[in-house]
Simulated scan of single mutants.
Amino acid sequence: MKFLNGLLLAAAAVEAHYTFPRLVVNGKAEDKDWSVTRQTKNAQSKSGIENPNSADIRCYSSTTAPNIATVPAGSTINYISTQQINHPGPTQYMLARVPAGSSAKSWDGSGSVWWKIATTMPYYDNNKQLVWPAQNTYATHPAVIPASTPNGEYLLRVEQIALHMASQPNKAQFYLSCSQINITNGGNLEPGPNMKVALPGAYRSNDPGIQVNIYNLQPDSYQPPGPPVWQG
Rank of each mutant, 00 (worst) to 15 (best):
T91G: 07
T76H: 10
R97Y: 02
P52Q: 10
H87I: 08
S81K: 01
N78M: 04
N53M: 09
A43L: 05
T63D: 13
S103F: 11
N67F: 05
S45W: 08
S81Y: 09
C59K: 05
D56M: 12
K46V: 02
A73K: 00
H87P: 10
I49Y: 04
I68T: 13
D31E: 14
R97S: 05
A96C: 12
C59V: 06
E30I: 01
R97P: 00
A73Y: 00
I77D: 04
A96D: 07
S35W: 14
P66M: 14
A55S: 11
A43G: 01
I80Q: 15
T40L: 10
T82L: 13
D33N: 14
L95H: 00
P72M: 15
Q44E: 15
V36A: 08
I80K: 15
E30H: 04
K32S: 14
A73E: 00
S103W: 09
N67T: 09
T64K: 09
A65W: 12
N86R: 02
K41E: 05
N53L: 14
A55M: 05
Q84Y: 08
S103Q: 06
Q39L: 11
H87R: 03
Q92C: 08
T64F: 10
G89R: 06
A96P: 00
I49L: 14
K41Y: 08
S62G: 13
K41W: 08
S35D: 14
D31R: 15
Q92Y: 05
D33F: 01
T70C: 04
S103P: 05
P66F: 12
W34E: 06
Q39C: 06
P99A: 06
A104K: 03
E30M: 01
P99H: 01
V98W: 06
